[in-house]
């Protein structure tokens, strides 16, 4: 018999359930006095470099109803395209930008909202630049394995046209599901879990 790879299996995912906010954003869930603030509630400060933007949207189910119990996390590069991460080998990211945000959807309206900056471009594996984008991760009751997707910017037509990831989408009519719409100073990005407008989700 040959040697064994001795690999372990990843722990199986389970739904975050209806009360994910107790664990991940307890202050939002009205459990106060345990943590001083909810993690991921603020991504920027006065000194953060880059163009300030607001991203808001909804996570919408197959009956066109926004989820009021979801949790959305985002991860993005700073204004010069660097990640605030130990695995970032190309330089040091803006120390005044965390790059990571976490937001529960509103219990009444289902809206999520992030105050952040527009990310710079990050290279793909072969060195070509990807278009500015933000990685999204969505968990909620009824979602058995957290869903990954990317948000791009509709007003970055030239960059989007040469983005190597967007280029992988076979059905071009689905590309717009990843494009945030410009809306005043901000962008709106709705995530559709299923149906005709289903967002392109990633197996990353």
């Amino acid at each position: 018999m040959a040697q064994s790879l001795n690999r372990l299996k990843e722990s199986a995912s389970q739904t975050a359930g209806p009360y994910v906010h107790i664990g991940c954003t307890p202050n939002f869930a009205e459990i106060t006095g345990v943590y001083s603030e909810d993690l991921g509630a603020s991504m920027v400060n006065d000194k953060t470099k880059g163009e300030r933007i607001t991203i808001s949207g909804h996570v919408i189910d197959g009956a066109d109803t926004p989820l009021k119990d979801a949790l959305v996390e985002i991860w993005q590069a700073d204004a010069s395209g660097l990640y605030n991460s130990p695995a970032e080998m190309r330089g040091s990211a803006d120390p005044n930008f965390t790059g990571w945000g976490r937001c529960p959807t509103d219990m009444t309206t289902g809206e999520f909202r992030f105050e952040t900056i527009k990310p710079g471009r990050v290279p793909f594996k072969d060195g070509r630049l990807m278009a500015p984008h933000i990685t999204f991760w969505i968990v909620a009751r009824g979602i058995n394995l957290g869903l990954s997707t990317r948000m791009y910017f509709e007003d970055e037509e030239a960059a989007n046209a040469e983005d190597p990831v967007l280029a992988r989408i076979e059905h071009r009519v689905r590309v717009p599901t990843l494009l945030a719409k410009k809306d005043g100073n901000g962008y709106t990005f709705d995530i559709h879990l299923q149906g005709e407008k289903e967002t392109v989700f990633f197996d990353i």
Binding site: D61, G62, I143, N144, R168, L193, Q194, V200, F201, F202
Partner: peptide, 10 residues
């Protein structure tokens, strides 16, 4: 049922 993507993941 209403929260599951139906199309293939990328």
């Amino acid at each position: 049922v209403l929260r599951s993507p139906q199309k293939a993941l990328l």
